[in-house]
Design a protein around this nucleic acid. Sequence first.
DNA 1: ATGGGGTATATTGTGCACAATCTATATATG
DNA 2: CATATATAGATTGTGCACAATATACCCCAT
Lengths: 153, 153
Amino acid sequence: MVVAEDRLEGGDPLDLDRQVCFPLYAASNMLNRLYRPILGDLGLTYPQYLTMLVLWKDAPQTVRSIGDMLHLDSGTLTPLLKRMEQSGLISRTRDLDDERRVLIDLTAKGRELRSDAEKVPAILSAELGIDEASIAHLRSQVRDLVAVLKAHA
Amino acid sequence: MVVAEDRLEGGDPLDLDRQVCFPLYAASNMLNRLYRPILGDLGLTYPQYLTMLVLWKDAPQTVRSIGDMLHLDSGTLTPLLKRMEQSGLISRTRDLDDERRVLIDLTAKGRELRSDAEKVPAILSAELGIDEASIAHLRSQVRDLVAVLKAHA
DNA sequence: ATGGGGTATATTGTGCACAATCTATATATG
DNA sequence: CATATATAGATTGTGCACAATATACCCCAT
């Protein structure tokens, strides 16, 4: 669907509706708001949920490898992981083979949380009522943008 | 472009690559990182830049109307606007007709900044090297999602 | 006019997100 | 072996983003 503002008809380049970045920024905030109550029931924030997704796929992992997956640095992850350690979902231990590294592993409680978390995507798509096809399409669009952005990082 | 993970072949629903929200979250962070040095030259952060876009289009405005445009609440905007007042770009004055309201207006310095800001979109698209057509396509995709999200806010 | 209900903004507290900087450790190179 | 260089995390400081709450104010119906 292409609306008037999308056409290159010499409008104001600073019009909010002509920015790519703004809808992306707004959508990211709105999704976060939508996730918040659902994840709150599990005792997680959205970045913490993403961290759990990474760990459920493969654990233990270093702080660095988690950051590579999520495109986050240690300044963000260190305090986040300490909070998750406090809430008993993960453990943080120095790697004895390379003492610069900290290994993040799941606790029993962290592993158990997975069965509850598996319901989250379904709850969300039900709440939004978007069909799976348009979700897949949007996802590949945004993923292409991420690929371009990654190249210019 | 549809890749393997997009097909509904019964994979793990918690796989990071199957989430819509994650690429969106990552793209939003990455765009913010990309904007930061460019806007830093103008003395702005990204949300402050968005606020200026709103004000350049129409000023003065209330905190509320700015928040409606950007989907942000007063808890976010109040301190942000105070910082912008400190840096001399805007003024904050109680509306005498309705003392609940605060009117945000541009200062001369704020209006002058516009000519520099007009270069920002060109700098950015040059830096990314994405053609205008795919940007327009992506924009309408994300905007559709925002419309859906807005309906469920 | 007055009291009740809704509105506009501010405040407080928590949790990201990132740049800049620091410390400790590992590894390569002479 | 010694030292230079690079790497892994942690720390500090700034600025969002939001929920929950507080405060002041407008307006309407009695």
